[in-house]
Simulated scan of single mutants.
Amino acid sequence: MSTTVAKNGVHIATSMREAAAMLADLGEAGEAIAGGTWIMRAPDRDVPAHRQYVVLKHVPELFGVSVADSVDIGAMTTHTELGGIEAGPALSGIRQAARESAFPQVRNVATVGGNIRAIGFAEADLVPAMLAARARLELTSPTGTSEEDIGDYLATRHSRPAGELIGRVRVPAPKGRASAFERLTVRATGEYPIVNVAVSVDIDDSVVRDARIAVGSVEPVAKLCVSASQALIGHRLGDSAAVDAAGVEAAGELTSREGLDAPGWYRLAVLPALIRRAIARIDLSSA
């Protein structure tokens, strides 16, 4: 069956394979649409609208969440659904990010895959949470299916293969891992964050054996702060000196963007406090 589509319009896909083929046929004129929250803001971002859209809401492979040794999340899972999943402390940071992002009306339709895929969206809340949680993406393109670390994907979003789609997100949830998320806005919840921070730690005998601190909304793309993460390793999670060192290291690893919401220097100035608050939210009781 041919997957060639017309030159104008909205096209309904019913499988991952069909959606990937449609997008490949459309090329630069086409875009996948899920919740549509980022696409609707294209005029505000001075981005021209695409002429063709491939609708994903009828693709069954993109839905559902399963919880086992890892948590498997369909890319069409909404922020509201993600915030309500029953999973262990390894997923706490992701749940918190999903619950605290944007407004309820947006959370009800904005999707996991769309948040990760949104190029130019420095403030995306799920991205640092997924990055800290070691998420891996299942990707489908016209040539097949593959899996990739989210950090590698973020670094190459501008040059992904034609027709590629995020199908599922897999987050490992081993025993002893816990996480948390924090964000800072100008005035109130619901706004885009000036800074958002996610922290994931592996605890053994009350000591941090591994850590990942990811920061969003400071640079154009969320970043894993390696030196800041290493500052926590070998210490108890509540060690104030180690936590303070992590904040200083994180600020030194980032080159802050300027914005109408906040100047670059301010993002870096508040970052240590956000890291401290995120670490204080980590619940080790069930890790």
Results as ranks from 00 to 15, higher is better:
residue 201 V to A: 04
residue 70 S to V: 08
residue 170 R to M: 09
residue 232 L to D: 00
residue 121 F to K: 02
residue 87 A to E: 05
residue 28 E to Q: 12
residue 103 F to Y: 11
residue 150 I to S: 06
residue 127 V to K: 01
residue 221 V to Y: 01
residue 280 A to G: 08
residue 187 R to L: 14
residue 226 V to D: 14
residue 158 H to M: 14
residue 123 E to Q: 14
residue 48 P to Y: 08
residue 24 A to W: 04
residue 82 L to F: 04
residue 89 P to Q: 10
residue 68 A to D: 15
residue 63 F to Y: 12
residue 265 W to F: 14
residue 253 E to F: 10
residue 103 F to P: 00
residue 233 I to E: 14
residue 196 N to E: 07
residue 229 S to L: 06
residue 36 G to P: 13
residue 269 A to N: 10
residue 137 L to W: 01
residue 260 L to P: 09
residue 244 D to K: 11
residue 275 I to K: 03
residue 120 G to Q: 02
residue 5 V to E: 13
residue 2 S to K: 13
residue 272 P to I: 10
residue 98 A to R: 09
residue 98 A to N: 07
residue 134 R to T: 00
residue 104 P to M: 02
residue 70 S to T: 15
residue 113 G to V: 07
residue 203 I to D: 01
residue 92 S to N: 11
residue 270 V to M: 11
residue 175 K to S: 14
residue 263 P to Y: 02
residue 93 G to A: 13
residue 224 L to G: 04
residue 20 A to R: 03
residue 44 D to Y: 00
residue 259 G to E: 07
residue 205 D to A: 12
residue 28 E to T: 13
residue 42 A to T: 07
residue 284 L to C: 15
residue 1 M to W: 05
residue 162 A to W: 03
residue 114 G to Y: 04
residue 129 A to I: 00
residue 36 G to K: 05
residue 8 N to Y: 14
residue 218 V to P: 02
residue 283 D to C: 05
residue 205 D to Q: 14
residue 181 F to K: 11
residue 216 G to A: 03
residue 259 G to S: 13
residue 120 G to D: 02
residue 261 D to A: 11
residue 284 L to D: 05
residue 242 A to V: 05
residue 25 D to M: 04
residue 73 I to Q: 08
residue 211 A to L: 08
residue 18 E to G: 03
residue 155 A to I: 03
residue 154 L to S: 03
residue 77 T to K: 06
residue 152 D to W: 00
residue 255 T to V: 13
residue 88 G to E: 08
residue 53 Y to S: 03
residue 94 I to F: 05
residue 247 G to T: 03
residue 269 A to L: 12
residue 124 A to E: 06
residue 11 H to G: 01
residue 216 G to L: 01
residue 94 I to A: 00
residue 285 S to C: 03
residue 130 M to T: 05
residue 227 S to G: 09
